[in-house]
Design a protein around this nucleic acid. Sequence first.
DNA 1: TGCTCGCGCATTGGATCCAATCTACAATCG
DNA 2: CGATTGTAGATTGGATCCAATGCGCGAGCA
Lengths: 238, 238
Amino acid sequence: MRRRQAAGEVPGTNHRIKRQGLHETLADSLRERILNGEFKEGEQLVQEAIAAEYEVSRMPVREAFRQLEAAGLIANRLHKGAVVTELPLEQIGELFDLRALLEGEIMARSAPRATAESIAAAAAILAQLEVAYRGDDMGSWGRLNWDFHRSLYVTAERPQTLATIQYINVQTDRYIRLQLFLTDALEQAEIEHRELFRLYAARDAAAAVPYLRAHILAAKEKLLVAISRMRSGERAAS
Amino acid sequence: MRRRQAAGEVPGTNHRIKRQGLHETLADSLRERILNGEFKEGEQLVQEAIAAEYEVSRMPVREAFRQLEAAGLIANRLHKGAVVTELPLEQIGELFDLRALLEGEIMARSAPRATAESIAAAAAILAQLEVAYRGDDMGSWGRLNWDFHRSLYVTAERPQTLATIQYINVQTDRYIRLQLFLTDALEQAEIEHRELFRLYAARDAAAAVPYLRAHILAAKEKLLVAISRMRSGERAAS
DNA sequence: TGCTCGCGCATTGGATCCAATCTACAATCG
DNA sequence: CGATTGTAGATTGGATCCAATGCGCGAGCA
């Protein structure tokens, strides 16, 4: 990228452009690649290599790395490079416990405040989610899954809680996507999503909260089994 | 800092040195200054000015800014500089609600697991805290206050939960320190800390959890009153 | 043969230079 | 006289260069 052409911009068609720095675009791309499992746990990321791949200097890569570090996806060791973080099994489980706690809490407040608009918005995302599901489009499934959950929470008007939940969801996302590869949990998730939406649209917080918690904790159990199998398999292979 | 002398290092006395990059040292210093209220809400931070003040180039400042942005203390607007974030009153309250929820949850697990060592460690920090209190040393009081709370939680062995709590505490810290200036809440906090420690040392989770929650929520109420008074005062003055 | 010291390579951290962009103010035109 | 445009100053974003650090390998010595 020698002379300024900010990624996806086409000068003639600019109606609503992105207005974000190169490093941010980079961070988005790298985050997606980590969450999709392209960069595996423990893998080292070399600034020079990434910079060459995207045809930029190392500078925006450095800044992107800092953002990813703050998001907990990589760890920067002084003068020793960055590695994709690897979470022990208990901590993955702990993240799901946190989600059950926080998402339950926010749902208790958001469901009674559901509006016609918020319900329509959630329905639209759910539809996209099912399309992605049937199309085996795992890349967008991960993002849409979070978008759906989030669409159920916005009416709570709790930005700090939502931000905290989002942070935790980023961490769990890559393991969830991994699980979708390994198990047939997707079908079950689809059913639960539909029920979750139904309860939200009915503004039935008393039913939605325990259902949501069960949804998250069930995903936790399946996931932990899948990961522990996979990891012990890897260990045996190496 | 023309030729390499990493801030606080004295070459002859290196037993356990910090091993951290300049940008990290900078981030620590700037964070402390924001939390202490030296940089007020909404105030703009100019890279060049900070760089000149610390006698470094703008580069480590840029990296430090990114860390602070990730911590939620400043906001970087593209080509428009960084400003210290300002939270609306409701969101400050929300942060305290989150703390009550999460710290209560972790205390329920950590108190029964208290060990002689963890109790001794907490007692030591509590002693330091009271020294800082009597010495009117507000700078270290802020840090010690968090250290004390944290020392009560380590036995829960929930690193992700603890990290989340820490993140939220960083946000609330500057308002707490502000409150200490404005009110006489310190004395009350000291009493509650002592009681909190007593319950933890007795491994009485059933009593400690509600007491802790009440401790946090009481602080919330007092703080919100103090801040709303201060802000309306500022508005009237301007 | 085994251990240690030192040198060289790989990689990151920091400094400096240049480009891009935002703000504000002023000049010009209707 | 007001609106709009152009231009200068300020400030950040990106590129390139240099310094520092960590690591591995091989030479040299006991």
